Amino acid sequence: MSRIQVRPATLRDAKAIAQVHTSAALQAYKGVVPDDQLKAMSSPEKRQAYWREAINYCEPQVQVAIEDDKVVGFVGFDRSRDPKTRPTTGEIWAIYADPGHWDQGVGLALWDAAREGLVEEGCTTVTAWVPLRNERALRFHEAAGFKREMSTAKTAVVGGVKIEEVRLHRSLN
């Protein structure tokens, strides 16, 4: 039985979410983004302000994974931000687990919560944008049933660094 609980985030969770986001991004993007750029874009203070605002305005909706009263992961999800998508298309805006909790079911618990939330919102499909060089994230999404849409590959600028991303999608039925 998993000790991981998932619940809606509160404003009190913003600092812990920012810490998880920072530590997971540092680990996930090591070798993808140059180290100096990675450190420069990994300000927990900026991330905390972003997640406080997201939680406050529910855009995106944010859920946290809790283990022993500690935030060990989070997911942000809502309608797709991509232009010209159907209103029934949702998007995983961000999904991160603390690196010390990788491969322990945190991501799956968060994905399950996001899927439920998107279905409740009337979504029938969901997408996620993932850097092509982030093999861990690609494997996670593909294990969750997402398929790559290679025709969507694009270059995104993250912290001043160009990163190739691809959209993944899956049905919520």
Rank of each mutant, 00 (worst) to 15 (best):
S2T: 09
Q5F: 11
Q5V: 11
V6P: 02
A9Q: 13
R12L: 15
A14E: 01
A14Y: 02
K15M: 14
K15N: 14
I17Y: 05
A18V: 06
A18H: 05
V20R: 04
H21D: 03
A24Y: 15
A25Y: 05
A28P: 12
A28E: 06
K30R: 07
G31E: 04
D35K: 01
Q37S: 08
Q37I: 02
Q37E: 09
K39F: 03
M41V: 06
E45M: 05
K46P: 04
K46W: 09
Q48T: 07
Q48G: 09
Y50W: 10
I55W: 00
I55T: 06
Y57P: 05
C58K: 15
E59C: 10
E59M: 09
E59D: 13
P60K: 00
P60T: 06
P60R: 01
Q61V: 10
Q61G: 08
Q63F: 14
Q63P: 02
V64A: 03
A65T: 12
A65M: 14
A65L: 14
I66A: 12
E67D: 15
D68E: 07
D68C: 06
D69F: 14
D69H: 15
D69S: 15
D69Q: 15
K70F: 09
V71K: 12
V71W: 13
G73A: 12
G73T: 03
G73F: 12
G76I: 07
R81N: 10
R81D: 12
D82L: 10
P83H: 04
R86A: 07
R86H: 07
R86C: 01
T89H: 14
G90D: 08
E91W: 10
I92M: 15
W93C: 01
A94P: 06
A97Y: 12
D98H: 05
G100P: 09
G100K: 13
G100R: 11
H101W: 15
W102R: 06
Q104V: 00
Q104I: 00
G107D: 11
A109F: 08
L110Y: 07
L110G: 00
W111K: 01
A113Q: 07
A113F: 11
R115V: 03
R115T: 00
V119F: 03
E120D: 10
E121L: 13
E121H: 10
G122L: 10
T124Q: 09
T125F: 05
T127G: 08
A128H: 02
P131G: 11
P131R: 05
N134T: 04
N134S: 05
E135Y: 11
A137Y: 07
L138G: 09
R139E: 05
R139Q: 04
F140W: 02
A143R: 11
A144E: 15
F146Y: 14
F146H: 12
K147G: 09
K147I: 08
R148I: 04
R148A: 08
R148H: 04
M150L: 15
S151D: 10
T152C: 08
T152E: 08
A153P: 01
A153G: 08
A153F: 07
K154N: 13
T155C: 09
T155F: 13
A156H: 09
V157H: 07
V158Q: 00
V158R: 01
G159T: 06
G160R: 02
G160K: 00
V161W: 00
I163P: 06
E165H: 01
R167V: 06
R167H: 03
L172F: 07
